[in-house]
Amino acid sequence: MKQEMEDRMALKDLVDRYATESDKNNQDYYREIFRPDVKLKVYFGEALGMDINNVEDMIAQYKAFGAAKASFHQNGQQVVDFIDDTHATGICYAIATLVTEEEGKDKLTLHAVRYYDKYEKMEGRWWIAEREQHFVYSSVPPLA
């Protein structure tokens, strides 16, 4: 039971560090949480927007979006199911709020996101091995 609790805390730390480092626009940190051969699929609604097969391509494509003027990623619940001692699956819910500039004006975008992850423990630590990132909906409310 103690090992399972430690593993759950380590997996929560992975998704929280992803959010925290994304807020800092530090995509290079993704090398610390995603396996080098990570499989990433990003969906916008039902449409597949990205299909990436390694962390270096992931970093490059995320950097290509450009840095937001401000961002706020907030994780909600995370549910983890262990397959065995070194493999698990998880779902994490998140809200990503971004302020970007469009035509000289600030634009606020809110994204509701679900991450469907597969985790793998290698050499004593957990990694995100696969991720399906689903932008469930996005909203562009007025920015005060």
Rank of each mutant, 00 (worst) to 15 (best):
A88E: 00
A129M: 09
K105P: 05
H111Q: 07
E120K: 13
Q77C: 05
K107H: 05
K118F: 07
V136F: 09
G66D: 03
I91R: 01
M5Q: 13
S22C: 15
E46A: 06
N53P: 06
G45I: 02
A10V: 08
A129R: 13
Y29G: 09
V15Q: 14
F135R: 06
K105F: 06
E130A: 15
P141I: 12
L143N: 12
Y29H: 11
D23T: 11
K105H: 12
N26F: 13
D57M: 07
G49I: 04
G76I: 00
M58W: 10
R31A: 08
Y93W: 01
N75K: 00
L110C: 02
D37Q: 04
R31F: 07
T100N: 15
N26W: 06
W127Y: 15
T100L: 08
T97P: 01
T86S: 10
T100M: 03
S139E: 15
K41I: 03
E32W: 14
K41R: 04
E21M: 15
A60K: 05
V79K: 00
Q78D: 01
R8S: 12
D106N: 08
E46M: 05
G66T: 04
V79D: 03
Q133H: 11
R17G: 06
F135C: 08
E4P: 08
A94C: 09
A112H: 08
I128H: 10
F82P: 00
W126V: 05
K105M: 03
A60H: 07
T100E: 04
A60S: 12
M58H: 07
D13K: 12
K2I: 14
A19G: 09
E21H: 14
S71E: 04
Y30M: 07
K107T: 10
S22T: 15
K63P: 01
E120M: 13
Y29V: 02
T86F: 05
D7H: 15
V136Q: 06
L110T: 04
